[in-house]
Design a binder for these strands. Structure first.
Lengths: 181, 181
DNA sequence: GAGTGTGAGTTTGATTCCCCAACTGACATG
DNA sequence: CATGTCAGTTGGGGAATCAAACTCACACTC
């Protein structure tokens, strides 16, 4: 039984090379070692997602990003630097003398598009009165759903369960026995 | 040609009633009026996503959430209150005298599960060395992909384009003509 | 060649937020 | 009566944030 949809390619551009972002270790993260905490450490600061939104929309210059997000300029400069250090954005010099840089998505940055789409979808439905952004898929409106590529079935939350893979932790928290020694 | 997958139900539990969250208006948002900005205003503060992660994992009590996230207790109290005000969490009194509350997901909160899954998937791939969390789908590992429910096709970013629906704005920013008047 | 504009920041000073640790209050347990 | 639990709240110091002005290097205009 073949999967009806192909598994999404992940890190193909990277071909087994080290992570583009300064990969975070468990001890860099507060509380439970977990991909959510690691992701928040990289893109969870204020203005980061809005800056990324603008780059996804095709705005690559500092002034455009500042105007469209409303972020203070110093904060935006700091965030762009952090996103660059995380391997999510790259700076390209489009003018020497004076040096001028534009910001572009790396493979890791482009890989954030499912996160962005999920946020757009949720926000349109639950956070504002009227949708302010939408996606076209070919020539029709995108109706986003999740599917398991292994079995091809549309995802329902009740068919899924979480597995905690961090050593010393389970779903309820740190495991007491032999946790500290 | 029928869609091979059913469209995801959104706000069915809510049946056309007002938004559970204090729905945000354009002027509440910095910069471009957009679902990303609205979502960030509700769940973008520090510790919010980690608190939600714990509730998704089944930890509903203040002390458990505090321990597993590592959040300062005062910040956590503030975030839980904000998420409650946003209609994402609800407090349930599980003990009177002394009054003790546990935190549970509302329909809007449960609807964040695609966002959470997208973040887990990205984080496992790009932010940490080794996956620390995974999902089981039935009895196999979940391999998450996006599909357009309208046409049934697996999503590729190059097949999609963004539409800006906010009046006075396009992808590049605010529209100059007749913008202010 | 003086003045104005553009672009990407940096600096400044006031404000706000965040972290940590200790404390509170109402009970349960020994 | 002392200790423990639970869900917070309070206080003080430090860090981050904000808005606005400023810098620097050039380009364009008159």
């Amino acid at each position: 039984m073949k999967p009806p949809v192909a598994p999404t390619d992940r890190r193909l551009d990277n071909g087994g090379a080290p992570l583009p972002s300064a990969a975070l270790a468990d001890h860099d993260l507060p509380g439970r070692p977990c991909p959510v905490a690691a992701t928040m450490a990289l893109i969870g600061e204020k203005w980061s997602m809005l800056a990324l939104r603008e780059v996804f929309l095709g705005n690559h210059r500092f002034n455009d990003i500042a105007r469209n997000t409303g972020a203070p300029r110093d904060r935006l400069a700091a965030r762009l630097r952090a996103l660059e250090a995380a391997g999510i954005l790259e700076r390209r010099e489009y003018s020497t003398a004076p040096a001028r840089y534009s910001y572009h998505l790396t493979p890791a940055g482009k890989a954030l598009s499912p996160v962005m789409r999920a946020i757009v979808t949720w926000g349109n439905t639950w956070a504002i009165e009227t949708p302010r952004m939408g996606y076209l898929h070919h020539d029709h409106e995108l109706e986003l759903t999740e599917v398991c590529a292994t079995c091809g079935e549309q995802l329902r939350s009740r068919d899924t369960s979480v597995r905690v893979l961090a050593p010393g932790w389970d779903t309820t928290g740190p495991i007491e026995s032999a946790a500290t020694g």
